[in-house]
Nucleic acid binder design. Sequence first.
DNA 1: AATAACTGTTATCACATATTACATAAAAAG
DNA 2: CTTTTTATGTAATATGTGATAACAGTTATT
Lengths: 171, 171
Amino acid sequence: MTPPDGSGVARTRRRQADKAPSPPTGAGERAIDMGGLPDFIGYALRRAQIRVFEDFIRSLAKLDVSPAQFSVLLVIDRNPGLKQSQVSAVLGIQRTNFVAMVDELERRGLVVRQAVPNDRRSHALVLTDHGRENLRKAAKLQAKHERRLGERLGEGGREALLRLLRALAST
Amino acid sequence: MTPPDGSGVARTRRRQADKAPSPPTGAGERAIDMGGLPDFIGYALRRAQIRVFEDFIRSLAKLDVSPAQFSVLLVIDRNPGLKQSQVSAVLGIQRTNFVAMVDELERRGLVVRQAVPNDRRSHALVLTDHGRENLRKAAKLQAKHERRLGERLGEGGREALLRLLRALAST
DNA sequence: AATAACTGTTATCACATATTACATAAAAAG
DNA sequence: CTTTTTATGTAATATGTGATAACAGTTATT
């Protein structure tokens, strides 16, 4: 499996290079035949995912929290004391790659690794006060982002989309 | 914008590391609270995209054609003679990164860069016979893949999904 | 006690994407 | 027609994301 970020979207750098794909094709130049690409699930999925992640990143830019970081903070907040391996597993992040993520969150003072009473191998993850405060703000911005997406999808669109996406992802 | 592949999916390597996110939570260990993550568009989108790309890659493994390569071959086939920059632009690939892609496709004998009559800067891209044949086979496998996805989505699900995804991606 | 499995970690590798700089060539401006 | 701007392809490079292998310390099994 794979982490909740990826998306190929550069979080730090400001994007906007080359140009967006196929602006409706101006006057003169003959339209380019996409060969049905936009009607393929995978292509449509990818395009949508990129857009949504871009919007997410813009929405939380103030806090500099990526989609992946948001998911990590959220899970730790709801399940304080989980081991690194547990958090990484539910999120589909490999524990080896998860190390650096926790390093960064710890460096920023959002998370701490705590000793576990009966197991000297594992680290229990908990949010600091600062981490909780940061998550609270992030969640607010994320909710706004989510609402914005919902509006684009029309009445009942969001729920329908979630159902369909789960159908694709399940099993 | 961004290319049609990405997806964080390793095409070459065989995947399956760590374990899939949150298997329904067995008996003993208390369920982990995802904090509503699965109900967020971005998260669901990402998960679905990964799954779909994995399936695509498996489906076309025989031909060793990635989603990105498939889209490139398709566009060149439908619009023979387009310049590199045109192809990369419609697909949302930066022209600098597109160079290596064309190199590879050319190396494999699927595509050729042709001189353009009135412009000595640009290269016109066309499929070779081998490239066309390869695309034909790829399209067949892709169609099967697409049908399989459609079945998962139920009656009218595919069309509904495409509509919703386009709503997210547009503008 | 010996062996196996778990946990976190480091070091790499592969690959996707973005940025910068450049050479050549065509187009636009003057 | 010359100067300047823009377009095109390319290389070099940096960063991010994901996968693999190996390892040390610890705990669990046998």
